[in-house]
Amino acid sequence: MPGEILDNQGRGEASWRWPAVHPEGRKFGLGVGVVCLVTAAIGWQWLAWPLALLTFCVLAFFRDPRRVTPQEDRFIVAPADGLVTLIQKVPPPRELTIDDGSGIRPLGTDPVTRVSIFMSVFDVHINRAPIGGTVRRVIYIPGKFLNADLDKASEENERQHILIERGDGLMVCFTQIAGLVARRIVPFVKPGDIVAGGQRIGLIRFGSRVDVYLPAGTEPKVLLGQRIVAGETVLAEVGQAALIEGVSQ
């Protein structure tokens, strides 16, 4: 994922820019926009104005802002924008703990820390790779469309597991979970692809959740209730498990 290098010593240039719209959303915006123009042309202003607002909302939902990703092997960055709603010790997804005959080393069954990030319809919905490495597995599982904020959504909702392995063998799994409104999970990667940390790897349409399973011995550097930014917020530091407390204010 080539891009401009910026650092904490002032190197590089930064300025605000209007976010691009991801190609996945342009067709939706174009479709609603065309209907808006047709209704305006025939004099149905009462319908054209709401459609104009809907066009703006659709394009805003699929916005794809640029992000600056910290380039440190010890960092695991957030794969999604949103609110940290759950931090729990749980076993890894069972689909990734079984040997599927592919030759890819399965995850262990011992509990690890799972960080759940809830994305509302107002959040950016482009998901990004938490680490750089090789995509080992992409497993889609059909299911329900329960409220993505519920704990059981991790086991019952439509979801997609993505497992990335770094060159040193470190594996990080994250799961894209559809919610009440989300009806499609769109991957940008497939097994065998090599990705950089912070690279765009998929999206979930219209409200959803992402679960990240941290490696053993690693605890998050984010707090319950904290808002985080995909590709930029350092979610965890490999091998670091110190308690961090915060105050809601």
Rank of each mutant, 00 (worst) to 15 (best):
P142Q: 08
T39C: 11
C57K: 13
L86Q: 14
E237S: 12
W46D: 15
Q249D: 07
A148P: 03
P70K: 06
P93T: 05
V135H: 08
T109S: 14
V34G: 00
G198F: 01
M119K: 08
P79D: 10
L224Y: 09
W44P: 05
L107M: 14
V189L: 01
L243F: 06
G192K: 02
V38I: 08
A236S: 12
E72G: 11
V84D: 07
Q45D: 13
I5K: 15
E219R: 12
A80M: 10
M1H: 15
A196K: 04
S120A: 13
Y213A: 00
Q88G: 08
C173I: 05
I42K: 05
T233M: 07
F75W: 12
Q9H: 15
R205H: 04
L214R: 04
P220S: 05
I126D: 08
T175E: 08
G33L: 02
F145T: 09
G10C: 12
A80G: 10
I228G: 02
R137D: 10
P19V: 14
G10Y: 14
G207S: 03
W16Y: 07
A196I: 02
F28C: 03
K152N: 09
Q45L: 15
A242H: 13
L223T: 03
P106V: 09
Q160H: 06
L54D: 07
I194L: 01
F145H: 13
Q176H: 13
S120F: 09
S15T: 10
V135R: 08
F28H: 12
V189G: 00
R105K: 15
R184D: 00
I228N: 01
L83T: 07
L150M: 11
T218F: 06
Q199N: 01
D110I: 05
M171T: 14
T113C: 11
V90P: 09
F118M: 02
V90K: 13
Q9W: 14
G143P: 00
G103A: 06
L83H: 05
P220A: 04
P2Y: 14
